[in-house]
Simulated scan of single mutants.
Amino acid sequence: MSRWEPNARGRLEQAALALYGERGYEKVTVAEIAARAGLTERTFFRHYADKREVLFDGSNRLQQTLLDAVAGAPPGQPPIELVGTAIAALGALFDAGERRELARQRQAVIDRNPELQERELVKLARLGAALTDALHEHGIPVPAASLAAQIGMAVFRVTFVRWLDGAARRSFAELAGAAFDELREMTSRSTPPTART
């Protein structure tokens, strides 16, 4: 096999998602993923620690994007506006190429496996903690930073589900903006607004 492996990481991700969808996460081996991708097990382990990490590979990029958006925001923004900017910035990751279909496949695998659901919750908790720290470093006091980050992560989860559905084919950033608009309406009215999709 050639030493040059174009887009090995992407090929491994696509192979893993296809196999997990066909046979279930538990029944698929690293050897099978590598073979489906036309690569070796050694190549797999150069990119991923184990077969679970194929599903959570983007966590560091998500976190860095959130942190960069907060760090790059002008000082003095209200905490919720700052979080809204950070969540909308994730659109650059989600709306690139064919990410929506891969994300649907990934989520379907996670939804069928309690161990993976737990790992997803850990990932979201880490993102929330990192966002809290970034907000605090940006000058937001800790209680407000923590509350804003948790609200932001709740909006992120709602936005992600709507984006996966994709019925309206709106971008992640547009859906995040709409979710924050709904949040503002809910906190300024006595009756909840009609849900938007």
Rank of each mutant, 00 (worst) to 15 (best):
N113D: 15
A129K: 11
F156E: 07
A34K: 00
R170A: 09
R119E: 09
E118T: 11
L62H: 11
N60T: 15
A195H: 11
A129R: 12
R11M: 03
F172V: 10
T65H: 01
A134N: 08
T194M: 13
A108S: 12
G24T: 07
A89T: 11
R169A: 13
A73H: 06
D68F: 05
E98R: 13
V70C: 04
G97D: 04
V158R: 10
E26K: 08
A69N: 03
F180D: 03
Q107G: 00
G21P: 00
L55A: 07
A96P: 00
A103V: 09
P74E: 10
L39S: 01
I87A: 06
P78I: 00
A49P: 01
A15H: 03
A149T: 04
E120I: 03
R52G: 14
E182T: 15
N113K: 01
R46W: 04
P143D: 06
A88C: 11
R162W: 03
A195I: 15
R11V: 07
G128T: 11
K51S: 09
Q64A: 12
F45V: 01
T132F: 04
W4R: 15
L93V: 12
A96V: 12
S2K: 11
D111P: 00
A103W: 02
R61G: 06
L121F: 04
A145F: 03
L90I: 07
S2H: 09
V54E: 04
E13Q: 15
K51H: 05
A69W: 03
